[in-house]
């Protein structure tokens, strides 16, 4: 098993953090993991992305030629990374901000209205957890429980109260992904 996931969005949409949580969750499940960020002149409003590898074998290259899954939180991310998906790969995209889906037909496209669903939960900031939940549901990279366990381990004491909200966001994303899959 080897998952190579690229997660991309505007700076501030939480893709770097979501990627770290995915890597952490994989580690807790005893997998080999790597997390590699784009970095440098990125800022709020610019684009940011990271590559997460979760595998049964030691991760050789942390740099990926062909992704098995992509999360695109905005239009520029979709345009940039659609082409790097392997045939049959999974594209989770934020359909609140991306009206027009991918052009490729040899991939599995999973539209998730991440911002709208986060708004329903009452906190815009969990849109990243919504798409992460969707990714987990479709690809099985890691269990949602492992992501929650990662949050428990990494959040400071005063932020632990946010865990139920994040759990709900993961579940909502999974639900949306299953709905999208049923429609497709």
């Amino acid at each position: 098993m080897r998952h190579e996931v690229i997660m991309a969005g505007f700076g501030g949409q939480g893709m770097m953090l979501a990627g770290q949580l995915l890597a952490y969750a994989g580690m807790l499940e005893g997998k080999y993991v790597s997390w590699y960020p784009s970095y440098g002149p990125e800022m709020r409003g610019g684009t940011a992305n990271c590559t997460v590898v979760v595998a049964d074998e030691p991760v050789a290259s942390p740099v990926v030629s062909r992704a098995s899954a992509v999360i695109a939180m905005n239009r520029p991310s979709l345009e940039r990374f659609e082409g790097t998906l392997a045939p049959g790969g999974v594209l989770v995209y934020n359909s609140t901000l991306i009206e027009q889906g991918p052009t490729r037909t040899d991939i599995k496209a999973v539209p998730v209205p991440a911002n709208a669903l986060a708004d329903e939960l009452g906190d815009k900031r969990v849109a990243n957890m919504v798409v992460l939940g969707a990714l987990l549901a479709v690809t099985g990279v890691a269990k949602p429980e492992s992501v929650v366990a990662s949050l428990r381990k990494t959040l400071p004491e005063r932020r632990q109260n946010l865990i139920p909200l994040n759990e709900q966001a993961l579940a909502k994303g999974a639900e949306a992904a299953q709905g999208a899959a049923a429609k497709a």
Binding site: Q20, A23, M27, Y32, V33, S34, W35, Y36, P37, Y39, V59, P62, V63
Partner: peptide, 10 residues
């Protein structure tokens, strides 16, 4: 190199 510095691994 920058990959080694920026990358996270277990």
């Amino acid at each position: 190199d920058a990959v080694l510095g920026q990358m996270m691994e277990a």
